[in-house]
C-alpha cells in the first residue's frame, strides 16, 4: 500500500508525520519511506540508516549538432517550453527549461538534436532495521523536479514488493511535482495546521486531489492553535479528519534535535494508532 503525505501549505508537518509514521510502522514490520521532496529532502535528518546503494540520476536533453542542422526551425516550433530557440544560424538549448519530451529530437528531419543524458541529482537508499529509506536530491541549479520524482518512484516500485507499506514524503504546494509525487498513491494524508493560511492552502490541495481522483484524509497538526475552520470545513465536506496532533513545545524541541516524537509523547502515539486503524481499514477496501 502506498500512502503519500502532502500538505498544500509548507511547514505544516509533512516530514514530521512521514518520519514518525515510518518509525512507528517499522516497529511492526518491514516498511519503506521515500522522500520525494527532491528540492529539499529532509526526512533524512531524522532517519540515521546505513547506505545500501546510491546512484546519479540523469534526464535526457537535446544536444544540437550544427553540421547536421538545416535550420528549418521545426524544433523551436514544437517545443512548448521555449527550451529550444533558433537565433539566426544557430539553435540554442536551455536544459533547465527542457521537459525531456523528445518532440524536437524525434521530429527533427535531419537528426540534428540527439538526446543526451544530463545529471540532475542523486538517489540514496538507506537501511535501518525494518525501515528502508530512499531519498532523492536535485542538484543545485536544476529546475525540473518531476523527472527525478518519477525516477525515484520507479526505483521504489522496481525494488520493493507492492504489498509492503510505503510512505512518500511529498513536496509542498499543488504544482506538477506534487501531482507526480501523489499520483500513484492509494491514499493521501493531507497534513494541515488549523490556521487561516493552513486552511487556505488545504482547500487548494483538496481541489487538486479531487481533480486527479485520489482518495485522501486530513491530519490536523499543532491542534489547539488557530481556529476550528479546518475541522468544520472537513465535517461539512464529509472529509475524514484522521488524527489531531496536539500543539506542544516539547514536540518542537524534539524535532529541533532530529528526534522522533511518537515514542516520547503518548498522545502522539495514541493519534498514530488512529491513523494505523484508519489506513488498515482503507487497505482492506482497496484490496
Amino acid at each position: 500500500m502506498k500512502i503519500a503525505i502532502a500538505s498544500g501549505k509548507g511547514g505544516t508537518g509533512k516530514t514530521t508525520l512521514s518520519t514518525n509514521l515510518a518509525g512507528y510502522f517499522a516497529e511492526k514490520g518491514e516498511m519503506i519511506l521515500a522522500d520525494l521532496d527532491v528540492e529539499e529532502p529532509n526526512s533524512g535528518l531524522f532517519i540515521k540508516g546505513e547506505t545500501v546503494y546510491k546512484e546519479d540520476k540523469y534526464k535526457m536533453i537535446p544536444e544540437w549538432e550544427q553540421e547536421k542542422c538545416s535550420l528549418c526551425g521545426l524544433c523551436q516550433e514544437v517545443c512548448n517550453f521555449h527550451a529550444v530557440i533558433q537565433l539566426m544560424d544557430q539553435i540554442m538549448v536551455f536544459p533547465e527549461l527542457c521537459h525531456s519530451c523528445y518532440a524536437c529530437s524525434e521530429l527533427c528531419p535531419t537528426g540534428a538534436l540527439p538526446m543526451v543524458p544530463k545529471k540532475m541529482g542523486e538517489l540514496n537508499h538507506f537501511q535501518k532495521d525494518n525501515l528502508t529509506f530512499v531519498e532523492s536530491r536535485l542538484d543545485i541549479g536544476q529546475e525540473q523536479a518531476v523527472p527525478l520524482i518519477s525516477q525515484t518512484n520507479e526505483y521504489v516500485d522496481k525494488h520493493f514488493h507492492k504489498e509492503v507499506l510505503k510512505i512518500y514524503d511529498s513536496p509542498p504546494g499543488t504544482s506538477c511535482q506534487v501531482i507526480e509525487a501523489v499520483k500513484n498513491a492509494d491514499f493521501v494524508i493531507l497534513v494541515t495546521e488549523p490556521t487561516p493560511f493552513g486552511f487556505h492552502d488545504l482547500k487548494l490541495a483538496i481541489d487538486t486531489l479531487k481533480e486527479v481522483k485520489i482518495r485522501f484524509g486530513v491530519v490536523v497538526n499543532r491542534h489547539g492553535i488557530g481556529n476550528d475552520d479546518v475541522v468544520n470545513y472537513c465535517q461539512k465536506e464529509s472529509i475524514d479528519v484522521i488524527a489531531k496532533i496536539p500543539n506542544s513545545r516539547r514536540i518542537a524541541e524534539l524535532y529541533s534535535c532530529g528526534e522522533l516524537i511518537y515514542q516520547k509523547i503518548p498522545e502522539v502515539k495514541h493519534q498514530f494508532e488512529n491513523i494505523e486503524r484508519y489506513i488498515f481499514a482503507i487497505n482492506k477496501k482497496v484490496s
Partner: peptide
Amino acid sequence: NEAHGAGPRTAQRLF
C-alpha cells in the same frame, strides 16, 4: 501568458 520559457522567447523577439 505562457507557463514556461517566457524569458528566452522574449529575448528571441528582441534578437
